[in-house]
Amino acid sequence: MSDKVIIIKAKSRIQLIDWREIWEYRELFLVFAWRDIKVRYKQTILGAGWALLQPLFSMFIFTIFFGNFAKIPSDALPYPLFVLIGLIFWGFFSGTLSAASGSLIANESIVKKAYFPREILPLSTIGTNLIDFSISFIMLLLVAVYFQVIPNILALLIIPLGIIIGALGAGGLGLLLSAFNIKYRDVRHALPFFIQMMIFLSPVIYPSSIMRPSFRYLIALNPMAGVIEAVRIVFSGGTSVNWITLAISGTSSILLFIIGYYYFKSTERFFADIV
């Protein structure tokens, strides 16, 4: 039997991340994600079809109003495909963010009664949303086929990179907000509003090419801004990815992850007492 020794002591201000323990509990990531997926579409007729319908409906509405009426430019892509890329990537980010932020509260009874590395709860929502993302991504490919758009080979690099940036950004912000949410339920009121506003601060319905370059760099602090922009370029067959904005978005997401994780670890000792 392993001679594992557990030492319990009075609080030290900050807990280091125990990678070995997280590795030991790796299965729990999958179990939580699997549970959320199973529960989410129980007693629905369409089931996972909702992961297709939501972006599809938004695509139609946005195409009619912003593409046709407002005549918002869409660079080299047909507007429906253009807006769908934005919606799907933004949906992955915002879906993860809102699920992660509420994860500790939603699992209050588990937090109070069982021990496991707490970060698994918010971080496992990345997995859940990745499944939804994959389903809608297949639809995106079908739409691309319909419009006879052939992505550049660079897409094989940019798309995984975009997912990683989105996961780090949403995961980090989610860690921060989930810990904050335990103490201050203001998050519950502020977050839906914040997410709604953020969609306009991301180039989802408009191309970032309509912005001044300096403003483009500022917007790129939003991790999805650089990602959506780059994905659209490679989707339309181009190679002229704006590496600077992508780098800004990438750095921003890494910073968000570090800050979020730090705040999470520095408050986690009190979760079970306050929640």
Binding site: M1, S2, D3, K4, V5, I6, I7, I8, K9, A10, K11, N107, S109, I110, V111, K112, K113, A114, Y115, R269, F270, A272, D273
Partner: peptide, 28 residues
Amino acid sequence: ILSRITFPTEGSAMLRGTVGSLLEVGTG
């Protein structure tokens, strides 16, 4: 505290081995 769900204000505990906690039936 011994299950590491909450932490002590003072003092310490040392446990040699894996810990299984059953504070509630049907957690989760």
